[in-house]
């Protein structure tokens, strides 16, 4: 299901526009306002309000079942694909209310790309994996695709490793390379925001380090929201961290503050390993 969701997620309109460089950090890329979410009778997100900074890395942490992945999936309406889900409140992505009835969900998922825990390249060549989103958007000009392919692979720090074998299968890459291929595929369609759901949990430490360095480099151009079970990873890569517990946002602070002087006792207990 996740991979079919991504298929739609990267469909784009024929014209790929680069959003005007809105260089000012500190601006909000996503406004989350009083969001509640239930799966049937199960109320899993309670009154979540937060601002996600433009061109920053924001990490969501918390124990399993705290709602962090659920919230992440709200940000590109991935939860629409689950039966019996109801969402209230408002999520505004760079000025657009993405839950408004007039919103084009496919366009939302083009603007808000996603990278999953398990890398999911298509059983196609490396090249075709990267340009897939462009092709289904109707772009077939080889020159445009070639350029997008190189730019995206460079952006994902994978170009040098695969440039001589672009026509080989994407499934033949190592786990870390596959994950970077998925990142290349996500950025090929020029999203504004990249959501990452546990992008390193299946990778070894070296591959993890490469992805972390990549995340750090990507924030020059993209707003990134990452869900991670790995506290150290949140500490290393993010600018701001939100701590979730039982579906509530307990604390949301600049990462250096969160990890040196958390305000809430629950946060303190969680990041010092006393529960969770």
């Amino acid at each position: 299901m996740a991979s079919s969701a991504q298929d739609t997620g990267i469909r784009i309109k024929t014209e790929v526009k680069v959003q005007a460089a809105n260089a000012g950090t500190g601006e909000s890329a996503i406004s989350i306002d009083e969001v509640n979410l239930s799966y049937g009778q199960n109320h899993v997100l309670h009154d979540i309000s937060m601002e996600i900074g433009e061109r920053q890395v924001t990490a969501f942490i918390g124990p399993s079942g705290c709602g962090k992945s659920t919230l992440l999936r709200c940000l590109n309406r991935m939860n629409d694909l689950i039966d019996d889900v109801s969402v209230s409140g408002k999520i505004v992505v760079r000025g657009q209310d993405i839950y408004s009835p007039t919103t084009d969900v496919i366009e939302v998922r083009r603007r808000v790309g996603m990278v999953f825990q398990k890398s999911n390249p298509f059983p196609k060549s490396i090249y075709e994996n990267v340009v897939y989103g462009l092709r289904i958007a109707g772009i077939n000009d080889k020159k445009v695709l070639d350029e997008a392919c190189e730019r995206s692979l460079r952006g994902a720090a994978l170009w040098d490793e695969v440039k001589d074998r672009l026509d080989e299968s994407g499934l033949g890459l190592s786990g870390g390379q596959m994950q970077r291929l998925c990142i290349a595929r996500a950025i090929a369609v020029e999203p504004e925001i990249i959501l990452m759901d546990e992008p390193c949990s299946a990778l070894d430490p070296i591959a993890t380090l490469k992805i972390e360095e990549l995340i750090y480099a990507l924030k020059e151009r993209y707003t990134i929201v990452i869900v991670t079970h790995n506290l150290q990873q949140a500490a290393r890569v993010s600018d701001k961290t939100g701590f979730f517990w039982l579906g509530r946002l307990v604390e949301y602070e600049p990462t250096p503050d969160m990890f040196t002087r958390p305000k809430d006792k629950l946060t303190e207990d969680y990041i010092t390993g006393r529960f969770g």
């Binding site: 150290q232 500490a235 290393r236 990462t255 250096p256 990890f259 040196t260």
Partner: peptide, 9 residues
């Protein structure tokens, strides 16, 4: 120093 200790392990 404190931040590097906390954030970079």
């Amino acid at each position: 120093c404190l931040k590097l200790l906390a954030l970079q392990q």
